[in-house]
Simulated scan of single mutants.
Amino acid sequence: MAQDRALATLIGGALGDALGMPTQLLSPARIRSSYGFVDGFVVPSEDHPVSKGLPAGAITDDTEQTLLLGRILLESVESFDHKRWVGALVDWERDVKARGSYDLLGPSTKRAIDAINDGVPPEEAGREGDTNGAAMRIAPVGILMPPEPLEALVTKVAETCRATHNTSIAIASAAAVAAAVSHGIAGCDWREATRHAVDAAALGAKHGHWIVGPNVAARIGWACELVRGKSAAEAIGVIVDLVGTGVASQQSVPAAFAVLEVAEGDPWQAAVISANLGGDTDTIGAIAAGMAGACAGTAELPEQRIAELRGIDLDEVRALAADLVAARFSQAGGKEAA
């Protein structure tokens, strides 16, 4: 079960990422006028600011950085290798630019890497990183780390955030996502995973540099309550108008949990709802559908849509999921059921 749910986490995240790729940065009105209601992979418009030229079903930086973090975690399980991680991000950015893509590093990650290149220690470089880059790629930590003790999981999250997103808000947000994934891998359903995510966010807020901002744990619970019992159409309006769908962690991460609530844990529905929100649709979709996948397993993923994904090596994803789960069992001393 664990390996199946780990695979569903990574593929679910890719589905949400790819479905939201053409609609990212657009307003809900622009999405409707350009595409109608997005419920399948579409080609981005020729004038799209970041996605133009990509084929329908193409993944973006959300999935690529998630897989990259997973590999770095496996290479440095005992103590996270910040130097290797930052070097991998720099190499990745160079590669995507060589492939003709645009500058895909988020504002917090880019700022931190520039600081590190200027000689700033990694633990200080990320002290202003409060956007959702850490949360969007944190799923491998949730696969790697058992759900208990929660403190150990959150500490690992904080460790991976240190170089780029070493703030209370970013770590709280990433901890919530990682905890939801970890509990899903352990067999929890999406409702139980969300409850544990709120606890992890509260604990994560105690890490990193404190910055001004709302309480992420409280906002996750509030966002879920706002949309509970509403239709997808109603919920989209509520999420856009009240929760927010921007790159700020305190907007996009609670929005992803609200999407999970409305989709009732269905990974593809989570991807569809996210794609129609506007704003940071690919990241919200990657987070929401990834968490849903962790709690549902591959049987709930649409095989036809997986076959339509572009830019992802599914054999590589399967191998990564298997390796992360093996490392998880090693840390748990075999106490979790496979």
Rank of each mutant, 00 (worst) to 15 (best):
G53W: 09
D315W: 02
R328K: 14
A258R: 07
R195T: 06
A235Q: 03
A18C: 07
V157Q: 03
A56E: 12
E64D: 12
N276R: 10
A321R: 10
E46T: 14
G20L: 11
K230P: 00
D313K: 05
V262F: 10
V86G: 01
R137W: 13
E93T: 02
L324C: 09
S173W: 07
L68C: 05
A326E: 15
I138W: 05
E303A: 15
L277C: 07
S45V: 10
R191I: 12
H82W: 11
Q269G: 01
G246N: 12
A307C: 02
R99G: 01
G40Y: 02
T155D: 14
S252N: 06
A321C: 10
P214H: 04
E93N: 15
I273H: 03
G290N: 04
I284V: 12
G290H: 04
V253N: 02
Q251C: 03
N276I: 14
T109A: 15
Q65N: 09
L277Y: 10
G297Q: 02
D47W: 08
A152Q: 10
A255F: 07
I312E: 00
A292I: 05
V141F: 04
V43A: 06
M1I: 11
R32Q: 13
W92F: 06
A18S: 08
G12A: 05
E264I: 03
G237H: 13
A322R: 10
G246I: 08
L309I: 06
Q251L: 00
V247M: 14
A201M: 07
A98D: 12
A217T: 07
L144W: 11
E123T: 05
L25H: 09
D130R: 15
L10Y: 05
A296L: 09
G106Y: 08
K206A: 09
I306S: 00
Y102R: 15
A271H: 03
V181F: 09
G133L: 05
S79Y: 00
P214I: 07
M145Q: 13
S231N: 08
D47M: 08
L54S: 13
A179P: 01
R32H: 07
L15S: 03
K156L: 10
W210A: 14
M21T: 14
P121R: 04
D280W: 06
D47E: 13
I138C: 04
N117T: 05
D17E: 04
S33Q: 15
K156P: 03
P122L: 02
A258E: 02
W85E: 07
P121M: 09
L144V: 09
F329W: 04
A270F: 06
Y35C: 07
A115N: 02
I59F: 08
R94D: 14
R310S: 08
N276L: 13
S182M: 05
T164K: 09
G244C: 08
A296H: 04
A8E: 04
E64N: 07
D81L: 08
G285M: 13
P107S: 13
A200P: 06
D4G: 05
L150S: 03
L320S: 01
E124K: 14
E151I: 12
S252H: 01
V247F: 03
